[in-house]
Write a protein that binds this DNA or RNA. Structure first.
Lengths: 209, 209
DNA sequence: GTAGTTAGTAAGTACATGCTAACTATGGTT
DNA sequence: AACCATAGTTAGCATGTACTTACTAACTAC
């Protein structure tokens, strides 16, 4: 009756389902039953692959981590300017959020973090790495004269990350009624224009319109 | 045996406890039992004051709403420049978050929102009003020549809100190991410097150090 | 083809949690 | 001082959910 698959593929399926459902239901309301249904197993079948639900969450976190790092690495490839690499990095992050909207939900779920210190620190580490990456790019761009020389790379990176986070939050609570990457690119250009060494566009001192 | 208080004060105590515990446990893990313990009642005693838990959440949301609007209004009073009113508004918001850290947790809790459409739209409305307020201040500052004339007030307001949200998130998942308002003020100054019509500080075109 | 391993199932346990029902006792009003 | 509206209690129900146990059937090695 039941179709039998290798543990590897099943684990992967379960993690995928968890990511999909964590978005649909919210991370805390994600039950093993819901996952089992989605994946075509009985509820206890989940525990064949993950001894506890916490283990499942850790696997999900690991998956999210590798997804992110892979995209970050790819966005760094090539020999574009530092500023363009910032654009690429943020673009990659926005596309990832768009394709896997559970990520911010999990990342910022207070529930998971209070219950699960391991997850909290894992995500904190992820965000720290993202920040470091961005700050380095800002420093490079500054060095290359593409950005203001008085810019603190750490703070500039925080502002850019805030842009992404604020956008993700707004996207989520607005029921996703706008295009994430489009809006994100516009805001990023505005943010970068504020970091421009040449100052704002010509004629910006007084109202443009 | 039990001390008996007026329904008014008890309701207030319950809401306070809910706010404190929503921060400590996460909004979704906040149980009526925990609230009852904190307030010195038995668990069913809560239901004497709020027929359902949803009613409690709505009362909490209303409280948060009035808290925010009161602070916003106060931060607007006086005859400071538009830019300084932006500083005051953001400062007020940061202090509110610092004194009531449950607020971002509740505001962005996916769980509450999926379960409770009323809350979702209430908070969405709150955030929209905040954004409108900020955007108007930006527009005024632009009009007064304090900010770049090419600035889109809506987008600029989104960036500033992102700054606050990103900060709140980082503060939360870092276990609050930095001073929120201090960090916030520094980042706000950086953000505003990017909106300055005069461009970046003198000598910023190349590395300052 | 038989034996051992393991993915899967059925049935059920333990416990948390929102909520109800029936009763109790406090404290302001008369 | 008696009254009584109501804040509060005790006991319990219904439901949801992580996890267990004991078994079954599919795949794999010999």
């Amino acid at each position: 009756m039941h179709t039998r698959k290798s543990a590897e593929t099943r684990k992967s399926e379960i993690i995928n389902a968890a990511l999909r459902l964590a978005d649909k239901l919210g991370p805390e309301r994600l039950t093993t039953e819901a996952i089992a249904d989605a994946v075509g197993l009985t509820q206890p079948g989940i525990f064949r692959h993950f001894p506890t639900k916490q283990d499942l969450w850790e696997a999900v976190a690991a998956r999210v981590g590798t997804m992110m790092e892979a995209r970050w690495a790819k966005a760094q490839g090539g020999d574009a300017s530092a500023t363009d690499r910032i654009r690429a990095l943020i673009g990659a992050q926005l596309r990832l959020i768009q394709s896997t909207p559970a990520i911010p939900a999990i990342l910022f779920s207070r529930e998971l973090h209070t219950k699960n210190e391991g997850l909290r620190s894992a995500f904190f580490g992820l965000m720290s790495r993202f920040h470091r990456l961005l700050a380095e790019l800002v420093a490079q761009a500054r060095e290359a004269g593409e950005l203001r020389g008085d810019l603190d790379p750490d703070d500039a990176a925080y502002l850019i990350i805030g842009l992404v986070q604020g956008l993700a939050v707004r996207w989520s609570i607005s029921n996703r009624n706008f295009d994430l990457t489009e809006e994100g690119n516009r805001l990023l250009e505005l943010q970068l224009s504020g970091f421009d060494p040449a100052g704002p566009p010509v004629g910006a001192g007084r109202r443009a319109s």
